[in-house]
Amino acid sequence: MTQATVDEDGRGEVAALTAAACLFHGFSDRSRLSIVQHLALGEHRVVDLTGHLGLAQSTVSKHLACLLDCGIVTVRPQGRASVYALAHPAATLDLLAAAETLLGLTGDAVVLCPRYGEGAGS
């Protein structure tokens, strides 16, 4: 993230941090992340994604709605189907590459995190 212009009471910084947290929340679900990775390969219909990912149609549709609301994906009609694509493919791929780099640097720390890792809350 770039440093935001901050007004005297810090509202600009708070707004920028809130937006960033919302963006990362859009990527925080394993199913949504799988959908984003598939859309990085090109446009897909819901039926294509359900087949590729082994997820229920309702699950894929729910997560696509979230990604659409967040501005991460776009949708266009094609006959009776809807075709989804990444709204900003280059920026999304850059973000995913940066995440992979950071994950490589942290090793197993993220997975083992007692608050958000695999065993969290159990």
Rank of each mutant, 00 (worst) to 15 (best):
T18R: 14
K62M: 02
T59G: 02
V46Q: 14
K62G: 01
F27V: 06
L49H: 08
A20V: 03
L49W: 08
V46N: 13
F24E: 11
L55C: 03
L49D: 04
F24V: 12
S58K: 12
H25G: 09
A19L: 09
A16P: 11
H52K: 11
S31D: 14
S31P: 00
D29T: 08
L41S: 13
Q57D: 12
A15Q: 12
L55Q: 11
Q37W: 03
R30D: 11
A65D: 13
L17S: 07
R30P: 10
V46H: 06
L39Y: 06
S34V: 00
S58Y: 05
L17R: 15
H25Y: 05
H52C: 02
K62F: 02
I35E: 08
A40Q: 12
G26A: 04
G26I: 00
G26P: 08
F24S: 10
S28N: 10
S34R: 15
I35D: 06
D29I: 02
F24D: 08
A19K: 14
A56L: 07
A16K: 08
A16I: 01
L39G: 05
A40S: 15
S61K: 13
R45I: 00
D29N: 14
L33T: 04
Q37Y: 01
S61L: 07
S61W: 01
L41P: 02
R32M: 04
H44D: 06
Q57T: 11
F27G: 06
H38K: 14
A19G: 08
D48N: 14
L55M: 10
H38R: 15
A56G: 14
L33E: 09
L55D: 02
L23V: 09
C22P: 00
R45K: 15
A65L: 06
G51A: 13
L39N: 05
Q57H: 13
L55K: 11
V14M: 08
A40P: 09
V46S: 12
D29S: 10
S58E: 10
K62Y: 09
F27M: 11
F24R: 09
A21C: 04
G54S: 04
A65W: 01
A56I: 00
C22E: 13
A16L: 03
T50E: 12
T50P: 06
V47Y: 02
T18A: 12
S28W: 01
H44T: 03
S31V: 14
L33Y: 05
A65M: 04
V14I: 13
L33W: 01
G26L: 01
C22H: 10
Q37L: 11
L49E: 03
S28E: 05
G26K: 00
I35A: 05
G42T: 06
A15E: 14
H44K: 15
R45Q: 15
A16S: 14
Q37T: 12
L33C: 03
G54W: 04
T18N: 09
S28D: 11
F24N: 09
